[in-house]
């Protein structure tokens, strides 16, 4: 990537060099099935890391391990050098399917994290309104989620996760349920939000273009049992334009790694099913 070095610009706010999240030899079994073989990585403070991989490779599982919803079978997972033992308000989560609370208005969904902390209602609303404004939801504070479009629901979910001020924002395929137009719009917005929020972000995605457009680093996972097969740094300033040739080059590079991996997985799968068929006949 010698081409890029000439163009390195100081990253906005500078992704720090202190490791925020460290994974050491993470292994995860579901029953007897090995889902994660060996994952080791380090995610720095204020870094935006995208994790990409073939479907079913366990990228969401890795995110849930960081979130504390699931436990690793082996290995060590640290946040601020402290082992992760369960979910906590230092990590905010946004799911593909939004998971809003339908009985709460937009404003109450967004303030919930602060309500739970016991923050005064007035202060909670003030802090919520900031993120409601930045996510473009002003005017919808009193609407119930069922009346919102998919893109707006996702904005509520993002505002909800940012309002209680987590150090790390975990995004689980945040644009997966959105149509293309809404998605492109949200990607632009997320870049600006990130500049504003200045947090560590870990995003799971299966879209290479999303990953290269948003992230400082893209980790590519292998198919199951998963390992990290590539760690690509994208040293381009934000906001990024998908037509930028350098961005295209990264996109092609990662796509190539990914399709080689998918090809390998598919041929293995075919061999296995052919073997099973021969055994059957």
């Amino acid at each position: 990537m010698s081409v890029d070095t000439a163009r390195i610009l100081p990253l906005r706010n500078g992704a720090g060099t202190n490791p925020k999240i460290v994974a050491k030899n993470i292994q995860k079994y579901f029953g007897n099935v090995l889902a994660m073989e060996d994952i080791s990585c380090s995610i720095n403070e204020r870094e935006f890391v995208a994790i990409i991989g073939p479907s079913g490779c366990g990228k969401s599982t890795f995110l849930y391990l960081i979130a504390g919803f699931e436990k690793a079978s082996h290995g060590e997972l640290l946040i601020n050098n402290v082992p992760i033992t369960g979910p906590g308000p230092d990590r905010g989560i946004v799911f593909q399917e939004f998971v809003l609370f339908p009985w709460l208005t937009v404003l109450r969904n967004v303030t919930l994290g602060l309500d739970i902390k016991g923050v005064q209602r007035q202060e909670a609303e003030e802090r919520a309104r900031k993120w409601i404004r930045l996510t473009g939801l002003s005017g919808f504070e009193d609407a119930y989620p069922s009346t919102l479009s998919g893109g707006m629901k996702q904005r509520v979910a993002i505002a909800r996760a940012l309002t209680y001020d987590p150090e790390v924002l975990l995004l689980d395929e945040p644009f997966g349920a959105l149509d293309v137009q809404t998605k492109n719009y949200m990607i632009q917005d997320l870049q600006n939000l990130w500049l504003e929020a200045n947090r560590t972000i870990v995003m799971i995605t299966h879209s290479v273009s999303e990953a290269v457009q948003l992230a400082d680093r893209v980790l590519v996972l292998s198919s199951r049992p998963s390992r990290i097969i590539a760690d690509v740094a994208i040293k381009l300033p934000h906001p990024r334009d998908l037509r930028d040739p350098l961005l295209r080059r990264h996109e092609d590079e990662i796509t190539a790694i990914l399709s080689a991996e998918v090809d390998k997985a598919m041929s293995l799968e075919r061999q296995a099913s052919a073997k099973a068929e021969r055994r059957g006949s």
Partner: peptide, 28 residues
């Protein structure tokens, strides 16, 4: 949806808060 409980947990909700703020309205 178990993820509703997860969202509340990652906000640091106690069991009691999860019961009153998520489970009861969720099963309303």
């Amino acid at each position: 949806n178990v993820k509703m409980l997860w969202v509340a947990q990652s906000m640091g909700a106690t069991r009691w808060q999860i019961f009153w703020r998520v489970i009861i309205p969720g099963i309303f």
